[in-house]
Design a protein around this nucleic acid. Structure first.
Lengths: 342, 342
DNA sequence: TATTAAAATACAATCGATTGTATTTTAATA
DNA sequence: TATTAAAATACAATCGATTGTATTTTAATA
């Protein structure tokens, strides 16, 4: 009995009216008399009617659903961003489908297909490290599905994005290292297909220039910034003919594994090498010495990017607006870079 | 041009065949000749056809979508659980809609309605602290929608759940306090509508009994376990006519705010009072002294509950099976409870 | 070649709600 | 009361895919 779901036709039949009137009544249309509406609402409640969004969405070709793609849900930054996204979307009557690429381009492509098939109204995406081919994202564009990058973006023409000011954050981080009397500052950089790493690198370079410190290409060591890269990078760095005394890492993960390896080598932090990371992952405050790092508010980015996306969705007309929102960061100074001696 | 989406009818028309054949071809039915399938697949790829899941789902009344309700996405435990859920669901071809109740019953009810309207195939839920009325959950049941509780559950008849062994975990935690020579052990308990808090309380009591320590009702202080409750609870505790020297908290949040308040009062931890929390939130390793706590793997719980739910969904027949899966925990001993002196 | 079975395809209804248009009812005005 | 406008409701097509049944085509057998 409860197998068959209650439809507007059931309500219509019972009340002896047409299903179109029931539909309009439930949608509170002005075309339906108050008296009829009351009867419909009462009967709907009585029968436990639940509107079938599938049918409704199919007809309206609008789903009130947003797709979200992140590299990994359990990363603190992303889970905060998702929390902000969900809350903002929920308030606006949207539902959120969350997917994680796990840093795999293949999965990312597959996710986009799934989201397209589910006809989401818009997509929020923070791309994977592997994403050097943008065909799947162009696909979104061709289909005219609004999307907004947050945090990790790429340089597709005419996109909207919400990002932190990577340049400025990196600039400040490196200036801090310079203030701590670092002379030879190395940089562990990330995949250069990601704009965030390009900009962090640019900020690093600009800070050196401002303080008349010679930029040396060899001091920039690129990797995928995973845990395993810490030791490898440090080896490369120590093999250089410069006495590195400052290190700016493009994320916390590599900074922390670098610290661990340096400690094994009995190199003192911050005395020998002052270190700054990026992201303020929760581990960064736990490591000994605690890691100085750039704090970025995932929640704020999530909220801002959702609002931007919702704007784009409702603004179908002037779809051509493309915005970049820069969210401010702050440097959290901890022991890994603080030289009280001198 | 790209406005109108490509449908099976377009493909059918171009190839001069019927749309039902196109549908069957795309679904790789044995009723379609190999030659026809090839033509269909080729044309579909050429036109950039994307199956409309809304239409398909409506017809099949099956959505391959799971609803997930958690109190708060950004909590480390829940984001790990969600990561496990998403990964398991994705592998099985399911999509995941994530919603957060923010500990509000009203929002939880509203979310359930949304999920019902979206006709999810199943629901994973960790209930809010406010949830003392189970009507909305009964609604899921009446509609015959499979659901599985994870972590926070309630005592609806005949449900399936994946939970940690709260009793055992609490028992071990309190035994640890006893081993550290605590004689008067208080317990900060949570809302008794949540089974997890009931069971943690039972474990506390059982450990006392085993070690022939008199159980005193006054030593159990219930609250909503929020940050604000730490100081209030501590005040109540110190007003008691017993010299409390051990404290088992039902979550980390209240444990940490208790520690902070106790430090203000210059009460030494662990010397004066040894403290154990519950959940291993990331802050717990940061606080001074670091908090001894029960570690629970969100990922593991997420994976297990998703598998259980998927089983229930495919097992429509023997729907009546109800399972409880207990996931093991371990106690992480840190400074807040370790008395090296004695 | 004629007959029959099997394979392939076409037809048409359906999932449940929405919406433009047509029709009926009610209210307003002459 | 007759006419007209406005309000309320009914009709019917539609969104795109699926699926049971009917029909046509192909292959197998007599």
């Amino acid at each position: 009995m409860s197998n068959k779901e209650v439809t507007i036709h059931d309500i219509a039949e019972i009340l002896g009216i047409n299903s179109s009137t029931v539909s309009r009544a439930l949608n509170n249309s002005t075309r339906v008399a108050k008296k009829t509406k009351d009867k419909v609402f009462e009967k709907a409640a009585e029968l436990g009617y639940q509107r079938n969004h599938l049918a409704s969405n199919l007809r309206k070709s609008k789903t009130f659903t947003l797709g979200v793609i992140v590299p990994r849900i359990s990363r603190h930054f992303f889970s905060s961003a998702i929390a902000g996204i969900e809350e903002t979307a929920f308030k606006a009557g949207y539902t959120v489908i969350i997917c994680q690429s796990l840093e795999s381009l293949e999965r990312e492509e597959s996710i986009i297909n799934t989201l397209l098939s589910n006809r989401v109204d818009g997509v929020l995406v923070s791309i994977s490290m592997e994403t050097k081919n943008y065909d799947h994202l162009q696909g979104l564009k061709q289909r005219n599905i609004p999307f907004v990058f947050f945090d990790r973006h790429c340089d597709i023409a005419n996109n909207s994005k919400v990002v932190i000011d990577d340049f400025e954050a990196a600039f400040n981080a490196v200036e801090h290292l310079i203030a701590q009397k670092s002379k030879n500052i190395a940089h562990f950089s990330g995949p250069q297909n990601l704009e965030i790493y390009k900009n962090r690198f640019k900020g690093y370079k600009a800070a050196l220039e401002k303080h008349h410190i010679l930029y040396r290409e060899e001091l920039v060591i690129s990797s995928s910034l995973m845990e395993k890269d810490g030791a490898t990078n440090v080896k490369k760095m120590l093999a250089l003919p410069y006495k590195v005394d400052g290190l700016f890492c493009a994320n916390d993960v590599v900074a922390i594994s670098a610290i661990q390896y340096l400690k094994k080598l009995h190199i003192k932090i911050p005395e020998d090498i002052a270190i700054v990371g990026f992201s303020n992952e929760s581990i960064s405050s736990v490591i000994e010495p605690a890691l100085t790092t750039v704090n970025q508010s995932g929640l704020e980015i999530g909220v801002a990017s959702t609002n931007l996306l919702l704007d784009k969705i409702s603004d179908k007309s002037k779809q051509q607006t493309h915005k970049t929102i820069l969210v401010k960061t702050n440097l959290i100074v901890r022991k890994s870079s603080l030289r009280d001696s001198k």
